[in-house]
Amino acid sequence: MIEVPLRTTRLLPHTLLGRIGLVVLAAAITVLPWLVPSYYAELVTSAMIAAMLALSMQLLVGATGLVSLGHGAFYGLAAYVVYLISPENVALPIWITLPVAMLVAGAAACVVGLFSLRTTGFFFLMVTLAFGQMIFFVFHDTKLGGGTDGAYLTKPLISAFGATLDLPRKQKYLGTYYVALVQLVAMYLGLAMLLQTLFGRALEGIRVNEHRMRAIGFDTFKIKLIAFTLAGALAGAAGHMWALHRGFVNPEIVGWHQSAEALLMILLGGLGSLHGPILGALALTGLGEVAQLLTERKLLVEGLVILAVVILLPRGLAGLGSRNTSNGAGDRHG
């Protein structure tokens, strides 16, 4: 038997330089709040939360080839869960709110997946959109979560092991900042490990040729359902963090444009890599900020820039570092 060098999954950085780049990025985010005004640190917190949502969606889009428009609904649902389980004036510890938010979001995704994953392509897009909007209207049209106005959460928001994070008021934002960073890094590493398993290979097989996967004996429905549920739970972690960061919930965070925005981040950062969505989220947040400074037509500028990136960089921002595909594949046989 000849040993066969196993290629790492195409979604992870193939070069040492790529891996170092990601570590440098994480280190830069770690020291950033000590170098810039709190306004920018909070902006980066928002970007990291958006990155978590986009990263969870990449498990469906980039890894499995499933484009869902209902993904944002699980994110919004989890944010509402934080509000709904928090009793007035008492802060629940994060080790209760996080698992509950993820469990509810994951369970909702499992139910939606059971129905929607029987369809493919355009129909899958429409069915997930319909389910997402159903969840949206539950919060929009009922008094459950304060109706169209939304609701405020009790502060202080982050507490653990009976003690709230007792920072001076001026440094409160640091708490959410680092909790979001830790979760983002954990989510990236967790997904990177998952994609290296046989399960990750099966997802890739489904993306390339689902029919053939069934013919060689894979229960592709079950595998897709597990991925869809897991992605929903991870979106729940992002939504949970959003609620802790902003301190309020409103129906807008459940709407379909959350999914659309996450898709844009994936497209901007690159469909073919796991870190693409993170770069895309950081870039889109930064772009929005710059566009707002320069012009009143923020969305127009954003749209034009995204269009330019998609045309000029078909592999997204993540494709900037590596020269071309065949090169990346060739190195690893040597």
């Binding site: 290296q196 046989l198 990750g200 004996g217």
Partner: peptide, 18 residues
């Protein structure tokens, strides 16, 4: 990939592909 399909239990799916 075809050889792997027959070990399709969840536990074996989560083992390293290599």
């Amino acid at each position: 990939l075809a050889a792997q399909a027959r070990t399709g239990t969840l536990a074996s799916l989560l083992s390293r592909a290599a």
